[in-house]
Design a protein around this nucleic acid. Structure first.
Lengths: 230, 230
DNA sequence: CGGCGGGTTGATCACTGTCAAGACCGGTGG
DNA sequence: CCACCGGTCTTGACAGTGATCAACCCGCCG
């Protein structure tokens, strides 16, 4: 079923730029509900960039692979997020993207999207809005990684994830951080052990609970206090 | 003179989306060659966002002001950069922008730009390209601030500034870092003293020279080696 | 001349990276 | 059903790095 009308995300996703009567023009060029299993790769670094991806469920990471084989995680993507926005200007992927656990996503060719934009100016407006939001997110991340204390960084990261997730499914207190400590550490510029210790601190203070990779936020305002002490 | 045809930046700036015959449509809505003196503010945090700014010479910083009055520097902007891209989605400025030293800039209303985009689809294409590049820059910055060692962060910052500047005026070895240590420290998530010490290290190693806020890069490959050791 | 802000340098201490060991969990195979 | 194994996560000990506080230098301006 390639019908976006029944998708819960359609209000904020690309279909928002179309009227009911013209939506078929988009559904014609999108491949919806593609499945990805744990570790499955959407695209590899330095390939030619053809598709824009939309996360429907699950989550993805994008990462740079260094010459020595180590990975730097550039972003974690949640349902509703677009993946690949930064690649379009050069036509080449700057990072790789892979699924964290089982995920569902949709995929549209950049080229065809560009064609539709010529016909439907509202699509360009939406694109610019989405890019602008992606930039805001990147700036929030910068705010996070420029914190001096490890606990602040982790706390801020949790607050940001909670906010992002809350926008889509209104579930701000349960975070399913489907990523390894390794990945999280690389993303925040910390050592894995420091992540563990910071978690312990947050748990002892009573603002979160944790079982494996599932985080339960108990006291958001306290968590925010941690995020801002620096 | 509001004529973009004689501007050195026109090849990469908004005029690139227009043909000679239609360029007047853009020059009609842009205020070119506005002057700003040291500390002069382009816009304040949480104002309604009306203009997009283009840096022509000098430089600007964008910054968040916290409740306690402290500033967090979100970005430094060089000639050729667009300022304000991230604000458009919400219609409200998320940060403040002020000039570092004497600068020249151009200014265009978002609303009128949106009108032109309807008529000139190439303008939307360019906008998306520019947004995509801005996202790449943000990701590079994340790479920078997620480095664990202070010297790596500073070195990487210098490499990035050099690269960005090189794109515009092909001058990659002379950096005029027209910002206070305080601002730089906030941007990189370090203490001012650590910035000073890291500079000393880079100077002692022979890859840069420095007089006040002027940086001369002597050995770019060595500087890159510092940037990548982490 | 004296004060002031910005920058550097030195000394100290807390924090975090590193290394090592142990705990936990899931999967496999007997 | 249980023992074993691998990977992931946590905890502990220690060392190195950077934040903090203080002193000093310098250029600028009244």
């Amino acid at each position: 079923m390639s019908d976006c009308t029944h998708c819960a995300l359609s209000a904020t996703c690309i279909p928002a730029a179309f009227k009911k009567a013209t939506l078929f023009r988009f559904t014609d060029i999108v491949a919806t509900n593609q499945t990805a299993t744990n570790g499955e790769v959407l695209y590899q670094q330095e390939q030619s960039c053809r598709y824009l991806y939309i996360i429907k469920s699950g989550s993805f990471k994008t990462y740079l692979t260094n010459a020595d084989g180590s990975e730097h995680i550039t972003a974690f993507h949640l349902p509703g997020d677009l993946v690949g926005l930064e690649n379009i200007s050069g036509g080449v992927t700057l990072s790789s993207a892979s699924s964290l656990g089982n995920s569902l996503y949709c995929r549209a060719e950049y080229h065809k999207l560009g064609g539709l934009r010529k016909e439907f100016p509202a699509l360009s407006d939406l694109a610019i809005k989405l890019y602008s939001e992606a930039l805001q997110q990147a700036q929030n991340l910068h705010l996070c990684t420029s914190k001096q204390s490890a606990v602040s960084r982790l706390a801020m990261f949790l607050v940001l994830q909670s906010t992002r997730q809350g926008r889509v499914n209104n579930q701000k207190t349960e975070l399913n951080l489907n990523m390894s400590r390794q990945d999280l550490a690389s993303h925040l510029g910390l050592a894995v052990e420091t992540i563990s210790r910071s978690y312990s601190q947050l748990i002892k203070s009573g603002c979160i609970e944790k079982s494996n990779r599932l985080i339960h936020i108990l006291d958001l305002s306290l968590l925010k206090k941690f995020a801002n002490t620096d």
